[in-house]
Nucleic acid binder design. Sequence first.
DNA 1: CGCCTAGTTGAGGTAAGTCAATTCACGTGG
DNA 2: CCACGTGAATTGACTTACCTCAACTAGGCG
Lengths: 242, 242
Amino acid sequence: MIENTPLVRKLGAFVALSAPELAVLASLHKRRRTFVAGRDLVRQGQSDQAAYILANGWACSYKLLEDGRRQIVDFQIPGDFLGLRSILLHVSDHSIEPVTDIEVTEILAADLLTAFAQTPRLATAVLWAASRDEAMVVEHLVDIGRRDAAERMAHFLLELGGRLTLVGLATKAGYACPLTQYLLADALGLSSVHVNRVLRQLREAGMVTFREGFVAFDDYDKLAVFAKFDPTYMDPRGPLLL
Amino acid sequence: MIENTPLVRKLGAFVALSAPELAVLASLHKRRRTFVAGRDLVRQGQSDQAAYILANGWACSYKLLEDGRRQIVDFQIPGDFLGLRSILLHVSDHSIEPVTDIEVTEILAADLLTAFAQTPRLATAVLWAASRDEAMVVEHLVDIGRRDAAERMAHFLLELGGRLTLVGLATKAGYACPLTQYLLADALGLSSVHVNRVLRQLREAGMVTFREGFVAFDDYDKLAVFAKFDPTYMDPRGPLLL
DNA sequence: CGCCTAGTTGAGGTAAGTCAATTCACGTGG
DNA sequence: CCACGTGAATTGACTTACCTCAACTAGGCG
């Protein structure tokens, strides 16, 4: 019996994978490795032969400007790829840092490319997963470009909740969230001071409380209306390829 | 002889495509269609069976918020895919509008998916192209999140120049650019008034002049330093798959 | 105990937004 | 041929959302 990892569940939502395909996918999982919080696994500019699948914990991908400003592009939760783009583009255009201690399984570039050649449907499935990730980044772009700080925070917390719900780590009541206000600031393009003020504002409005590593939705619907949250872009609509 | 379209050139930079693979790629190009400037080809929320390859002209992909605010995610130039993500995700999470009158070739979802099954290396090549597009979006995210208006504008004009250079439509002297200040504003997360001021500032600093549909780099190097422009993320490094 | 990191709050500054008026190029119809 | 409307660019005056600097609190840990 093939194990039901978060990745298999994720890809299975798009392509109904056959037993041999699942076997190829399983054979990709090489070494299991662990990394400690805060020490980068992938460094901007590095040419890198491995990608990872996150099994446990949280990570974030970010880019640095020369003067030290930083923009967090996305957070990764269990089941997500780490550094897939680095493989395909030869050189990493971003860094990846574990937010908590994490467990990953390593995937070698060469193995992935041969797997694609053998099982084209797997390549299609991964293309789909990459598109989904891109949709997240795009929504994040809209957040930063066109929403004010409070809407942005609200929308972000809801989106994260939605993603975690898909892997069974959140409910409409809330979720455990290891992010600091500094990380939120770098993700949302705000200062950490302002993040603090905005969180207070949302808390005092009775919509959401983020405290001590836990996000509690005090009034989910009110928050969703306030943030103009439309989850269609995250919804899988069932397999496209049978 | 297989024609040397912008798309073939682009994919060839990553995967050395064989004659039969090129033939499959050519067979994807169905009807040639034209669209007039300003009328959306893809609408947010639409479920859509076709994607396009842009042969001529400029387009942009964007998302709307309910209250009318808009964020332009990316501009597309000849050789780029339009709506690839819409196919893979079943439903379009964004709209696409031609900036100028455009010519495209249509690609049907079903054809694309069978092509992937027959020629896995083509799937890999498209995955690579999608990753490159994602890298653009990511850089755009950094722009908006962590650069001030002037840096942002400078960086954007340089990046666009780089992309156009790859398809032979720009030099270090400048390029023809059909974008209005309103479009720039929606892309950069600024007001059109501020776009105007920033353009003036860059012009008066002797770095770049954008006037009457033409971007002229008055001092390319000075501009690149000012914008902290690092083109590595756009550079193809030669084929990964031989 | 003292240090460090995360969070909290206040005061004052600044980048960018809004509103509004003006110009200019262009097209269109009386 | 000119009157008119429309869309893009330009500029000024004023407002505001968010930033920076700074001080302070509270928990974790050697």
